[in-house]
């Protein structure tokens, strides 16, 4: 079972590594050849491959360089250190989670309003959709600056950007879920003369749960994106976004790539966590294995 799941994943990782190494050599070769020429060194193919993988500021770092950097900045550094990736990850993670929770809550509330109130459906939905057509990169700095001006800084402004991104899939998925019950089941509830509240709590809400979890998987991943984007305009103090930004200031490509890889790993872990929560919930709701 585990083997069946692991094997394809490992195969893909191996394939990516091979391609990555190929590009490392290819992209770093021009500069290396330049060096050889300047110092009039004799070089063989093996030299070239070895040297292109050992640049300080390569165009594209080799996977093992990135892994070594990650190792150095996680295991070998105290978590309280400003150079620890764990420290930066935690900064980003905390605002991701706060933003995700607020976004999920907002999205659910909006969905409930929309489903339970016709006027809301007509008036709210266009705004919700319009809100997502504005590029986040354009409004993230404004949110940060405006909130800073009224004395809010740190976690909350970043989390709000995550909220802004994540409430949307939740609202859309939840509306669909709340409207998903079979008409026959709604008729059944009608024959019991049940109240709106009873209809909501016994039928609509449970029906929406699978939709909610699907949306949450999307929402948590874009919450992370939101948190990273939110760190960019703050002048690169802390967080994975800050690492990306300072890395690009100083041409530290290895640092950029290790922050990127960490962000990707974090995203994967978050999605897996939501997945596990979804499975537990659905098991409790009697879903077949």
């Amino acid at each position: 079972m585990l083997r069946q799941k692991l094997l394809p994943v490992l195969t893909i990782i191996a394939a990516i590594a091979v391609i990555w190494y190929g590009f490392t050599v290819y992209l770093n070769a021009p500069w290396q050849l330049d060096q050889y020429e300047k110092s009039a060194t004799e070089w063989s193919m093996t030299d070239l491959v070895r040297d292109t993988m050992a640049h300080d500021r390569p165009v594209l770092p080799a996977p093992h360089q990135v892994v070594a950097e990650i190792w150095k900045t996680t295991v070998k550094k105290k978590v309280t250190s400003k150079r620890s990736l764990i420290y930066h990850s935690w900064i980003t993670l905390s605002s991701t989670l706060l933003g995700f929770v607020m976004g999920t809550f907002t999205g659910m509330m909006l969905a409930i309003f929309i489903v339970e109130n016709r006027a809301m459906d007509k008036s709210l939905m266009p705004w919700i959709i319009a809100s997502q057509t504005i590029p986040i990169l354009a409004i993230a700095p404004m949110i940060i600056v405006v909130l800073n001006a009224i004395g809010l800084s740190g976690l909350l402004p970043k989390a709000l950007i995550s909220t802004y991104l994540s409430f949307f899939p939740i609202a859309v998925g939840m509306v669909k879920g709340l409207r998903s019950p079979d008409p026959m089941l709604i008729d059944l509830m009608r024959t019991y003369n049940c109240s709106r509240w009873q209809l909501f709590i016994t039928l609509r809400l449970p029906s929406s749960i699978p939709y909610l979890f699907t949306s949450m998987k999307i929402a948590i991943a874009i919450s992370l994106v939101g948190a990273i984007v939110g760190e960019l305009p703050t002048g690169a103090v802390a967080g994975l976004g800050a690492r990306l930004l300072s890395g690009s200031y100083y041409g530290q490509t290895i640092q950029i790539w290790s922050a990127l890889l960490t962000a990707a790993t974090l995203a994967a872990l978050l999605v897996i966590a939501v997945n596990i929560a979804a499975q537990i919930t659905q098991r409790m709701m009697g879903a077949p294995k």
């Binding site: 079979d182 089941l185 019991y192 709701m285 879903a287």
Partner: peptide, 21 residues
């Protein structure tokens, strides 16, 4: 009559809630 819960209805399909025993 419906508001007074005057009847019980058995639908053509079972119409059970899948998440309830």
């Amino acid at each position: 009559a419906r508001l007074a819960r005057a009847y019980g209805y058995v639908f053509q399909a079972p119409a059970l809630l899948s998440w309830r025993t």
